[in-house]
Design a protein around this nucleic acid. Structure first.
Lengths: 197, 197
DNA sequence: TTCGTCATGTAATGGGTTACATGATTAC
DNA sequence: GTAATCATGTAACCCATTACATGACGAA
């Protein structure tokens, strides 16, 4: 999941770890808390060791003046490699069971702008089915075990059920939009969805 | 979290692992998926080793002597001990930061029927604050970074924001009910109709 | 010079999962 | 007597967290 998100962000532009973490918040803030450094930095090293990302040096991207000379420590800017792009393309094309849970779905959705429509549809439909199953489970409990459950437990189930129903409706809308060729904001999408750097 | 839930369920009635897992689903199904056996059974052993639960011995199904030798398979019914009850009382009285995230809040809420009102209020208010912070974060992103984000990322944020707003309203209702001495099932509480479209 | 923020990193740990492996009970 | 389900258990792993530790750098 982290691999996926990092590759995705670095394929938009080179960044250092600290910055990456902030971008992760703006991109995935609605589906998970900020990633910890204890997770982020080892992951960057691992991706680098695997040849999927590489240190960019300081030349490409000057939002500000980069300190001319730093000794050992200092910001390390990473950029994605050709292999990394390949790997990201593989990940973004996946649409299996692991793509339907909260985390997997969220990350995939966050990169839907660079996912082809057929894959988007498969993911949305898989996710819908998954949420419908959860919804049915909760309906079952409410129908089957309501009497022996206390008021708070019931309220929790009702709230969960409502959230599931709402998500299913949301997904149906998104699916309908995909089928009719609209972006989620209702605008008709341009033919080419690739974005420049 | 598992410890908490297991102690809570076993303090209602003795159960074996498999049964416990099913009860966990009906009690916590709205906040997390079913627990795996690879997590459940080792936890039971650990709780037993810690003296918080103990084997209830004779089965409720009338099977007699336990085969003393090699394979001691078969259902193992556990019940809570006095120490376990104490521990559960400690856990249920907690209302700290760890009680405000999704998992912690959900489990605590599921046992609200056995939590005193002051603690319920502290937890609900702490949770509300936590969700409000998330909500503000998402509002911030939408206000600050909307232009440079694609339609799907924005839709994800909007959906997350809406969910957070909804949860805050739900919590406010619950808090108001607690303050006026009503249970969430509407026993005394005049409950609104489900809002329509 | 001390504080706050940016920035990177390691060690220990945690709380689970999946895959594997087997035994006991029930329905046919 | 066998298939399905109930029931328990272990080993290996995974993906992250917290706590700790260092260091650069600008501003008060």
């Amino acid at each position: 999941m982290l691999d996926f998100a990092i590759l995705g962000l670095l394929s938009e532009s080179p960044m250092h770890g600290y910055e990456l973490r902030k971008e992760l918040v703006t991109k995935l803030g609605s589906i998970r808390a900020a990633i910890s450094y204890g997770s982020l930095y080892p992951t960057l090293r691992r991706l680098q060791a695997a040849g999927l990302i590489t240190e960019a040096g300081q030349s490409d991207r000057g939002s500000e003046a980069v300190p001319a000379l730093t000794s050992r420590r200092g910001r390390v800017v990473y950029k994605i490699t050709a292999e990394g792009k390949e790997r990201f393309a593989e990940l973004i094309a996946q649409a299996g069971p692991e793509t339907y849970d909260d985390a997997g779905f969220g990350v995939h959705f966050a990169f839907f702008a660079r996912t082809d429509r057929a894959t988007r549809l498969r993911i949305l439909e898989g996710r819908r089915r998954r949420v419908e199953e959860r919804r049915e489970g909760m309906r079952d409990v409410l129908a089957r075990a309501a009497e022996r459950l206390d008021a708070y437990t019931l309220e929790l189930q009702r709230h969960g059920l409502e959230a599931a129903e709402r998500e299913v409706r949301w997904l149906e809308e998104l699916i309908a939009n995909e089928r009719s060729g609209r972006a989620p904001d209702g605008a008709v999408k341009p033919r080419d969805e690739n974005q420049g750097g």
